[in-house]
Structure formats: structure tokens, C-alpha cells
Design a protein around this nucleic acid. Structure first.
Length: 615
RNA sequence: GUCCCGGUAGCUCAGUUGGAUAGAGCAGCGGCCUUCUAAGCCGCAGGUCGAUGGUUCGAAUCCAUCCCGGGACGCCA
């Protein structure tokens, strides 16, 4: 099934097809019927908005056209005859039997989500950690957003490559290695804190860039950039000489330096994997493909651009100029060294060609927007935006906003350091565990019988859900204020709210005396308004996922699930399930509950959020 | 200076790509538990959608010009 085809269990798919033929019959046009869920339940379940825009094109009367469509459309067994309203809206109320049939069709392991026959891979650049640096809140976003994007594509059957493009090569790493050696640190006992402080020391000691400063003046760079370079100039030292010789030894494969290099990578990644595991993000050693992987592909990148006549020398550096803008892309420094743009070009070519990716998604800080635009445009110039079999790849920079503190400035600790991810996760988990434990004191709580270990497991899941949901359910491109108190309040629009709805259903289903086969053979309950609203929303799940594969807007998942949980809670309030004496009604409601539970569970899994059975 | 991204309720944010009366959650006020889990539900109050003009049956959404905030702008990544 192609990815752009409509889910067969979604009523909007059927309505779209029927109205499309009606439009063709009436006007000989192939136009979008503009089927939308009704804005108000009083209007019906769906509305077709095509009459207005179609009338504009044909210079006809919108209400007359709407009437003609209502007359021409065949909705037998699907919906009642459409009702014309306002300037030309067509309001549609579905037959209950049709809703029940669609629910039955999606109520299986697939949940109505089809598997694509697209065989090209999806490549997701995520996490993006640097060796010798602790993960901070920026890495939180790159990791969990990337993981969610990957999960969504996996859900529709795509082959997905998670690429952790870690910064494990080049002068910064060599400077750190040199600093560690000068400090006589035993690398076998190395802690990440030691490593991190060595990295910062090395950065301070080694910053100097005369060529850069000269070029900055010559090209009229911004004052900010020049001030930055001047500050670096102040602290030039012998450290840079030491670092450069270390870099040469590393590049030359010197056994001693390479061994030290591997040790600092191991040290860094130990904590990275601990954090990704805590976050329930699938980022492990198998996803590592850092800068060092591309080290032998950098010179060929530059050669390739030169041979293609796309690059030229400028002030000793090699640049790729663009026709539509002043700013060129620098791919080799005047001292012969390569830059991150060079590595990114090598990596992009690897992703489209070697990994055969027709969709390449970079989950990286939005501030790198211009950089990626340049890299993508340069790749397009030379034709590296094509898969192995020549298909044009869709390459996207999914730039996320900055995490801010309550003061609206980038999040820092009291002392001005970046917030480490670990501290943040530890605090969220602690809050989750204490909250779950507190509630378990109540003898009537479903969690009362759980052991401390089990409570800790649930509390952990709750705390992590709070953080992940708060991040993933916002517009990714915007900055957001990180307020842990608000996130772990567990009331209102939160991850735990969704988990709670799920746990209620799971607990109810566990208590049900009806056999699984009795429930499975019942028709889903749709008679009551609360049931019907819940049912209609369940049917939109597959289309929601397809929308996310197109837009990469992970907040749509959160919005969908929140509405689902709200509709379920409203249903739960007004429609007794286990208390229903009538066997048919009870089983019908249990079946609706079961499907809701499955969709909630599946949806939460796209966020990598656990759904405990009790909480 | 050039370019990019934002501005929606007191606060934090949605708004299904131009549709009907702009929605949630916090915070505030008022109801609902001898419990199918109150981490919930129902109600009240809260808005010149940054500003002005334009496009049209119809604009928070599209176009233009301003205002405010943030970011990027050649040898760091």
C-alpha cells in the first residue's frame, strides 16, 4: 500500500471517494471534496466544503452546487443524505452501522495502519552527542524527537536508519586528548566529569584563529563574529601546537593515541546509552556513525566538487558558491583542513546513496538552518541528493527550538552551566516515584498491592512520560520554557494524563468477567453521544500517523492522544461499563474500551512512552 | 546591514494548511467520589489572534508595509 493512500477504515476515505465521483458527475472535474470532521457535533460527523471553492472556479452558485452534489452523491449504507448549510457546507451524519463496521475492520493488531510497499530507507540523524561532552537539554530534544520520527516511519513499515552522528573526530578531540595527557589522567579510571572538564580546559587554551580573523575582516563578517574571534586570539598558546601534533598522530593511526581516543569514546558513550535507555529512546551502539567514520571520504568530497566545477579557491580556502545568495559554503580551510560542512556532505551522500535513503531527516537545533540549507543545496548541485537507483530524495532539516528557562533565556544552572540531561532525568524520575508511592498508600488504590520495586518502575515511567510529552507535544520548531514543576504536576495536558486513561481501561478490562471471545464477538458500542464521539476519533488514528510521516509534526500525535483520552474520560464518566447489567451493552462497551486501550498504547509507543497497566 | 523564525486568554501552548460562534491546560470561581482509579468529570469567567492596509462569499491562517522579541551571517561544530 502506498504511503499516500487513504486508510480504508477511515470514514473520511470513503466519503472522499464518494464525493469525488459526485463532483465529477456534476462538474466533470477532479477536485478535492474537502472532507473535514465537523467543527460542531450538532452539524453532524463530517462536512464537505468543496462546493464553495468549486463554485468560485466555475462562477456558479455555491448553494446550488452543494444541492447538486447532495443529490448526486451515493452514500447508501454510509451516511444519511447530506444537509446543506450556510454558504454551501454539506453536513454529513454517518450511519451507526457503518461506524461499527469500520471499527471492527480496524480492531486488530494493525489498528488500521497499513504497511507501505516503499522500499527506500528513511534516514534519521538524531542525538548528535559530542565525545567528551555531557548530554544537556539540547540533546534531549535531538534524541527523543528523532526517536519518535523513527518510530513513526517504522510503524508504517519503512526501513529506518537511526544515525548518531557523534562528534568524535578532529581538533577539539585532539585538544582534549592532549590536555588529558598533560594532566596525567589515568584513562582507565576516567570519569565523564573529568573528561568534560578536560574538554573545556582544552577549548579555552586552544582557541586561536588568525586566518579566520583575517577572513572575517576581509569579508565584512558581523561584529559579533569578529569579537568572538578576537577573544579567542587572547588565549593562544602552546596548547594548540600540542593538540595539532596529537591530531596528526591520531589521523596517522598511532596506536597509543588511538587507544586513548577509544577510551574517551567509551567513557562518553557509557553515559549516553544510560540516558537514552532511561528515555526509552532506541539509540544504542549500533546507531553510531560519527565523524571519524567519514574521515577518508572528506578529501574526495572536495575533489568531487572541484572536478565538477562547482567549487573554487578563495583566499586560500575552497568554497562552493551559490547563484542566489552571497554566502558560499566553505568545504576546505586555507590550512587544508576540512570543516563540518565537508563531513555533512560526505554523510549526506552516504545516507542517500549507500543507505539508499529517499527520505533523510536531520533532527538538529534550528539555529543550524542556514548551514543545512547550504549543505543540501550543495548536495543537489552535485547530484548527491539521489538514492542508489537515482530517485530524488526528500532531505529535511527538522530544526527544533531552544529549551529556555523560566527567565526566557537558554536553560542554565545557577552557575551558568548547561543543565545536564542526567540531572534533569533524575529529578523527573524522583518526582514520579514519590507521586506514585504517595497514591499507593490509599488501601483502595489499584497500586496498593505493588512492591516498592514495582512502584518505582511505574513512577519512573510516569516521570519520563511527563518530560517527553511536554517536549514532543509542542510545535518542534519553537523554543519552549522548561518548567519541571509544571511538567510533573501530572494534571491536565500531560503524559501522565494519557497513562492514567490507559491504566483505567486496562484495570477495567482486567476486572471484566466476560470472556475475550464474548467481547470480540460484540459490536462496538456507538449509541450514546459519548460512545459515538470516542468511536469517530478512534477511526482517525491511521490518518493521523500518515499525516505525521508527511509533516513530521510530532505534536499531532500528542494532540490526537489527548483528545482520545479526553473523550474516553467523558465516556467513562457517563457510560457505566462493568456496572451494566445488560450483557450485550456491557460487552459492546468493553470492546470499545479495548480498542481505545490498544490505540492509546500504540500511540504512546510512538513517543516511546510506557503505558503501565496500573498507576 | 542582509537573511531566517516567532508574536493567539494573566501564564504555558493548540488551531487538522482559507471554513460556521478562535480552542486546551495551568492559575481563579462554583459543582461531582460510602470510588467500574478524583492523576478524573461538569460548569462559570477570561480574546482589538502584535499593528495597519489588501486579496474574497469567508482570514489567526494568504500578500504588502511597519512594530516588538529571538536567531544565523567564511575558515568552531
Amino acid at each position: 500500500m502506498p504511503l499516500d493512500s487513504r486508510p480504508p477504515t477511515d470514514p473520511a476515505s470513503t466519503l472522499d471517494a464518494r464525493f469525488r465521483s459526485a463532483i465529477h458527475a456534476v462538474s466533470q472535474r477532479d477536485a478535492d471534496p474537502q472532507i473535514r470532521p465537523s467543527t460542531n457535533p450538532a452539524f453532524g460527523d463530517y462536512q464537505a466544503n468543496a462546493a464553495m471553492s468549486l463554485a468560485k472556479e466555475t462562477k456558479g452558485n455555491p448553494r446550488e452546487l452543494a444541492a447538486a452534489l447532495a443529490n448526486a452523491v451515493d452514500l447508501a449504507g454510509i451516511a444519511e443524505p447530506p444537509v446543506i448549510a450556510g454558504p454551501g457546507f454539506l453536513n454529513i451524519r454517518l450511519e451507526s452501522s457503518f461506524i461499527v463496521a469500520m471499527l471492527a475492520a480496524m480492531d486488530n493488531a494493525s489498528l488500521g495502519v497499513g504497511v507501505t510497499n516503499e522500499t527506500h530507507a528513511v534516514v534519521v540523524d538524531l542525538c548528535g552527542v559530542n565525545v567528551a561532552k555531557q548530554m544537556h537539554v539540547g540533546h534531549l530534544r535531538a534524541t527523543i524527537i528523532g526517536d519518535t520520527i523513527a518510530r513513526v516511519f517504522e510503524r508504517v513499515g519503512r526501513t529506518v536508519w537511526r544515525e548518531n552522528h557523534l562528534g568524535d573526530w578532529g581538533l577539539p578531540i585532539a585538544m582534549t586528548l592532549a590536555a588529558l595527557r598533560r594532566a596525567n589522567v589515568d584513562l582507565d579510571q576516567l570519569t565523564l566529569n573529568q573528561l568534560n572538564s578536560a574538554y573545556r580546559t582544552a577549548q579555552l587554551e586552544g582557541r586561536s584563529d588568525e586566518a579566520g580573523l583575517a577572513a572575517a575582516y576581509a569579508t565584512g563578517a558581523g561584529p559579533h563574529r569578529i569579537a568572538e574571534l578576537l577573544a579567542q586570539q587572547m588565549s593562544a598558546g602552546a596548547a594548540i601546537v600540542d593538540a595539532k601534533s596529537t591530531l596528526l598522530r591520531l589521523q596517522g593511526g598511532d596506536a597509543e593515541v588511538v587507544a586513548a581516543w577509544e577510551k574517551i569514546i567509551t567513557c562518553t558513550m557509557r553515559e549516553v546509552y544510560a540516558s537514552t535507555a532511561t528515555l526509552n529512546a532506541k539509540v544504542t551502539a549500533e546507531h553510531n556513525r560519527g565523524e571519524s567514520f567519514f574521515r577518508d571520504r572528506l578529501a574526495p568530497v572536495v575533489d568531487g566538487f572541484i572536478k565538477a566545477g562547482l567549487a573554487k579557491e578563495d583566499q586560500g580556502a575552497i568554497i562552493v558558491p551559490f547563484a542566489d545568495r552571497e554566502r558560499p559554503l566553505l568545504i576546505r580551510k586555507s590550512d587544508g583542513g576540512f570543516l563540518y560542512a565537508t563531513t555533512d556532505l560526505a554523510a549526506l551522500r552516504f545516507r542517500t546513496f549507500d543507505l539508499n535513503g529517499s527520505r533523510v531527516i536531520y533532527v538538529v537545533d534550528a539555529r543550524q538552518r542556514d548551514h543545512f540549507k547550504d549543505v543540501f543545496d550543495a548536495a543537489a548541485l552535485i547530484g548527491w541528493d539521489r538514492t542508489k537507483d537515482g530517485e530524488k530524495a526528500e532531505i529535511t532539516h527538522l530544526g527544533f527550538g531552544t529549551v529556555l528557562g523560566k527567565d526566557k533565556r537558554p536553560l542554565k544552572t545557577r552557575s551558568g552551566e548547561n543543565f545536564t540531561l542526567k540531572d534533569l532525568l533524575d529529578e523527573a524520575i524522583e518526582r514520579g516515584i514519590s507521586e506514585v508511592t504517595r497514591r499507593a498508600q490509599d488501601p483502595n488504590a489499584p497500586t496498593h498491592s505493588l512492591s516498592a520495586t514495582e512502584l518505582a518502575r511505574v513512577g519512573r515511567a510516569v516521570g519520563i512520560a511527563a518530560i517527553k510529552y511536554a517536549d514532543l507535544s509542542n510545535d518542534l520548531t519553537k523554543d519552549y520554557v522548561f518548567d519541571l514543576d509544571r511538567m510533573v504536576a501530572f494534571e491536565g495536558d500531560t503524559g501522565p494524563y494519557l497513562q492514567y486513561a490507559h491504566a483505567r481501561i486496562a484495570n477495567m478490562l482486567a476486572k471484566a468477567k466476560d470472556s475475550a471471545s464474548d467481547i470480540a464477538s460484540a459490536n462496538h458500542a456507538v449509541a450514546e453521544p459519548a460512545e459515538r464521539a470516542l468511536a469517530l476519533h478512534l477511526l482517525r488514528y491511521p490518518q493521523m500517523i500518515l499525516d505525521v510521516t508527511r509533516t513530521l509534526e510530532t505534536n499531532r500525535i500528542g494532540a490526537y492522544l489527548r483528545t482520545l483520552a479526553e473523550l474516553f474520560n467523558a465516556f467513562y464518566q457517563s457510560c457505566p461499563v462493568l456496572k451494566s447489567e445488560d450483557d450485550t451493552l456491557r460487552r459492546a462497551r468493553l470492546r470499545l474500551c479495548g480498542l481505545t486501550r490498544d490505540v492509546l498504547h500504540d500511540g504512546l509507543s510512538l513517543y516511546g512512552i510506557e503505558a503501565p497497566e496500573r498507576m
